[in-house]
Amino acid sequence: MRREGGLLCNEVMSRYPDQQGMNIPAGLKLLCCTLLSICAFAARPVWALIVLSLINLLIVLAFRLGISFFKKEIRVFIWQSLIIMGLYSLRFGFDHGLLPGFLTSWQLFLAFVPGVMFIQTTPRSQVARTLSRIMPWKMAFVLSTSMQFMGLLLEEIRGIYEAQALKGGRILLKDIWKPWNWPDLVHCLIVPGIVQSMAVANQIALAAKARDFGKNNNRTYWPGD
């Protein structure tokens, strides 16, 4: 579980980007990415798709997103294209369905890539700050606090897991795959995990209120700053 917990955290935490490339305000970046997505939804002719692809490519190069970004996104594109082209081929036949299917998949890809680029190039605290302008500030606080305490919560649940496994609970990875062990999973891990999450939420809320949380609506500090 220690290794799994670390893996879970790493998988999520690795998505927290470092600021790289140009230093552009997050709000402006979000606006540009949303506009690019809207353009992709509206783009029908091939030349429009080529122009949009070039713009996206320029942004990727300007922000130095690297080879791994290309590899990951191209894999998504190929997988998605196979499904859509297959469906189009079934409907219109192989000759008439392949190209329209590919163009639709290309369009869909261009609609989603700007969002991924925004996330990859914007620090988490900046995104939270931007979101706080368009959502209630308390919600933005809950959002950033839950993400901040994610690691602590996983540690607490790991402690519960280890204690229950030592007590003989059938909750090891090799046991979880067997459905007859699921009652143990519920009683030994899920329920105590939920109770612990509630306790942590209560403690954070108490600490926030003790510091007069809610008196001033304009936050000056966000977790991750």
């Binding site: 809950v142 606090t145 839950s146 305490f149 509630m198 939420a201 209560n202 949380f213 809610g214």
Partner: peptide, 13 residues
């Protein structure tokens, strides 16, 4: 309540 909202935040996490 803030504690309930935080619990919902944890569920989301």
């Amino acid at each position: 309540h803030l504690k309930d909202a935080l619990f919902l935040g944890f569920c989301a996490v």
